[in-house]
Design a protein around this nucleic acid. Sequence first.
DNA 1: CTGTTAGCGCGTTCAG
DNA 2: CTGAACGCGCTAACAG
Lengths: 341, 341
Amino acid sequence: MTQKLKDEAILAPANGVTLIDVAKVAGVSPITVSRALHKPEVVSEQTRQKVQQAVEQVGYIPNMLAGGLASRQTKLVAILVPTISHSIFADLLKAAMDGLSEAGYQSLLGITDYSVDKEEQLLGTILGRRPDAIVLTGTEHTTLTRKRLGASGVPVVEAWDWTDDPIDMLVGFSHEAVGTAMAQHLYEKGYRRFAGLFVSDNRAMRRCHAFYEALSVLGIEADDAVVMSPPASLKEGREGMRELLARDTRPEVVVCSSDTLAQGVLAEAAEQGLQVPSDIAVMGFGDMANASQLHPALSTVRLDSARVGALIADALLKRFEDQRSCVRLDMGFELIDRQST
Amino acid sequence: MTQKLKDEAILAPANGVTLIDVAKVAGVSPITVSRALHKPEVVSEQTRQKVQQAVEQVGYIPNMLAGGLASRQTKLVAILVPTISHSIFADLLKAAMDGLSEAGYQSLLGITDYSVDKEEQLLGTILGRRPDAIVLTGTEHTTLTRKRLGASGVPVVEAWDWTDDPIDMLVGFSHEAVGTAMAQHLYEKGYRRFAGLFVSDNRAMRRCHAFYEALSVLGIEADDAVVMSPPASLKEGREGMRELLARDTRPEVVVCSSDTLAQGVLAEAAEQGLQVPSDIAVMGFGDMANASQLHPALSTVRLDSARVGALIADALLKRFEDQRSCVRLDMGFELIDRQST
DNA sequence: CTGTTAGCGCGTTCAG
DNA sequence: CTGAACGCGCTAACAG
C-alpha cells in the first residue's frame, strides 16, 4: 500500500503534486511544509523529518511560479551579454552563474548581439519574470531601458565597463584607460609606427579612440585604424591584416581590439613570412590563456573575466543580504608582455 | 493631469502596475486587457487600441509568474549544456536561443560541466519553474533524471548524440559512427601508424573506443590513446602531443577529440619543427570555421552545431504546435580534408 | 513551534 | 465581443 502510493506519486513530480499533497501525507498543514522546506530552523526537527520524508515519497517539486508570486522573490537572475562566443564573455557568464547558483539562484540568459535595442527588447520580457536582479554588459543603454530599470527597482549590475553615473552597481574598468595604456606601453617599448585593427562595437571603438588620442598626445601620427564589423573572428583578423599590409608603410606593431583578431593577424603574418615580434609586433585584448599558448611572442591587455563574473555574483549576493549594499568596483586591467617573460 | 498620471505611472513598470490598473485606465475589465494582449484577434480593434494605449501610459509589464501559474504555460525553455566555453556548444546554444526567442520563448541556462550528477541537480530546481520544454546535451542521464523527466511530462530534446531509446525528441548523431569514420577515412588515405589524443568526457571516449575498434577491424594495432581530463584547451593539446612524441615510434597521424586539442597539437608540432601534414598529420573534431583559418592543412570531422541548435528550436516549436509531433533526427556529420581543398 | 486567513496577478470557464 | 467568478500553488501576516 505504501509502496503503491509511492509508485503512483513518483510519477508526477512536476505534475499535480502540490504542497497540499505533501501536507496530507506528512499529517501537517501546508504552511508547515513550506516552512520545513525554506526555513528549517523555524520548525521542529521531528516535523521537518516527517515533511522531508513525505516530499520524497510523493516526489514533490516546489512550484517556483507560485512561490515567486506569493513571496515576490524569484531566485532568478537575468544576465545579458553581447555574445557567448568570445571566451571573455563565456568565462564571465560561467563564473557569475557559478557564484549565483551556489546561493540557489538560476540564470536567465539574454544575448544582445552588441545591440542596445536588442537589449531593450530582451529586457521587456525579462522584467515580466520579475528577476531578483539583472546583470547588464556595458553602460550604454536606451533611455527606455534606463527608465524601466529605474522604475522596476530591481538590483542591477553593469559590468565590463566604467562610468561615473551607473544605474546601480558596477563592476568593470575603463576602456578609455585601456586604449591610453596600450599606446603608452608600446611607445615606451620604442615603437613609433602604429596600426590599429578594431571591430566596430561600442567598447572597442572607445578603446580605439583613446588609443589614437594618446598617440597624438605623444606627438605621433598614425594612419586610421582598420575597422571591421563584428563578429571578431580569425577571418576578420586575417583580412584586416592583409589590408594593413597593403598600405604604403608597414607598421611596427598592430594593435587589435581582441585576442581573436590578434590570432588572425598572427596567422596572416605567418603566411606572409613575417616574424613576430621582430618583423611586426602584435598586441591583443582579452583573456590570453589560449593565445599565449599558441604564440608566446605577443603583448596583450589581460582581463580576468572569470573574476569579473565572480565579483558580479558577490555584489549581488551582498545586496540580497543587505539592501543598502552597492558595490562599485573598478577592477582595472593588466598589460602583459609575452616577449619579456 | 493626464501628464501627471503618466509620469507617476511610468515609474512603476515591474512594480505595482497590474492588469487591473490598465483595465481602469482603459475603462474595460481586466480580462479584456488580458485578451487584447494575448489574443488580439478576439477583441474589437477599438478596444484593443484603447488597451494598448493604456498599457503604454501606465508602463504595464505582464507578470509572467502569475500568467504562467494560471495558464500552465511559462514560455520558458531550459537548456543544459556541458560547457559554453567550446564554440560548438556556444554556437548550438546561440542558435537554439535565437530560434526560440523568435517564438517568444526565453532560455534558462544550465551548465553541467559534463557531469550527469550536476545535470540531475540542476534539473531539480529547473523543473520548479515549470519550463515548457527542456533541452539536454547527450543521452546519458541519471535514473532520477529520467524518472523526473518522464513524470513531469515536459517535452524533452536530447541533443548532440544518438540513441535508440531516447526520452522524447532527439537531434544529434552517433559518436560511435564518428570514431569509426575517422579510422576508415585515415586508413583509406594510406595512414598506418595512428595515435589518439582524447579528453575523458563520455562522448569523446565513445568516439575513441569506436576509433580503436575500427582500427583493429582493419587489422591495425595502435598504442593506447593519451587521455587527458577536461577541459580540452590548447594547453592539454600541447602536453598530450609532447607525450605522444616521446613514445618510441612516431605516429603518422594524431587523432584528437576536439579542434581545440588539435590546435594545441599543431602549436606543439610547429615548436618541434614538424611540418603538418607531411611530417605528421592531425585530425580534429568540431566546427572548423576557426581552426581552418589558422591552419589549412588539417583534417576534421565537421559539425554544424548552429544547425543543431536551430533544429532543436524547430523540433520544440513543432511540438508546441502539435502535441504529437516528435522529431528524431540523425543529422550526421561530415569528414573534411583541408589538405585536398 | 504550528495553524488560519487572505491574497499574490493572472487566465480559464462559463455566462451574457 | 465582453464580463464575473473562481482557482492556479504558494507564502505573509497574524493568531494561538
